[in-house]
């Protein structure tokens, strides 16, 4: 972790405690997850107990305390997606990558997450890879999409569990 980088982010927002969530968001945008050293450094700089920083980082869903894969596969499980087969999209992605939701492939290429609603309800079921949206998605198309992002059937089969649930 690069302390100067974190300091630069803090510098953009100031050290008021109310900026904590915003700072964590920016740090995550930089590293794709929240490294423990970064949390310690932020706690020190903002004069906030580490437990509070940790509390925030575990309470809000968008924060990850484990490194995530290069590609983030998010499957929407909002109500509209649910009734149009969202869970089957998730199962298919899990089966193809051989990991469960909130897990990362051993080669750190893919992380699969379910999200509660992406607000694309009219196009359900929806899957988002990185920032590319795929709407009205039948399960049979999932594999082809994942291949676009470099998945091959021989990709690593073991997985790393994310501790955060």
């Amino acid at each position: 972790m690069d302390e100067d980088k974190i300091d630069e982010i803090i510098g953009c927002h100031g050290t008021d405690k109310s900026e904590l969530i915003t700072i964590l968001q920016d740090v995550q945008a930089e590293y794709n997850w929240l490294p423990p050293d970064a949390l310690r450094h932020i706690a020190k700089r903002l004069h906030v107990p580490l437990i509070e920083v940790f509390g925030i980082a575990t309470f809000y869903k968008s924060f990850s305390l484990k490194p995530r894969g290069k590609h983030l596969v998010r499957v929407c499980l909002g109500t509209a997606c649910h009734v149009r087969g969202g869970p089957r999209i998730l199962e298919t992605a899990e089966r193809i990558l051989d990991i469960k939701a909130d897990e990362t492939t051993a080669d750190y290429e893919f992380t699969v997450e379910s999200v509660n609603c992406l607000g694309c309800c009219a196009l359900g079921p929806v899957m988002v890879v990185d920032n590319e949206y795929y709407g009205n998605l039948p399960p049979v198309k999932v594999e082809r999409i994942l291949r676009k992002y470099g998945h091959t059937s021989s990709s690593s089969s073991t997985s790393i569990k994310e501790e955060k649930s």
Partner: peptide, 21 residues
Amino acid sequence: AGAFVSGESSALMSSLEGKVG
């Protein structure tokens, strides 16, 4: 930062204060 319950008014305000929502 992704918490459904933070849409509740008092929770949203806690979140704005930089706390758990």
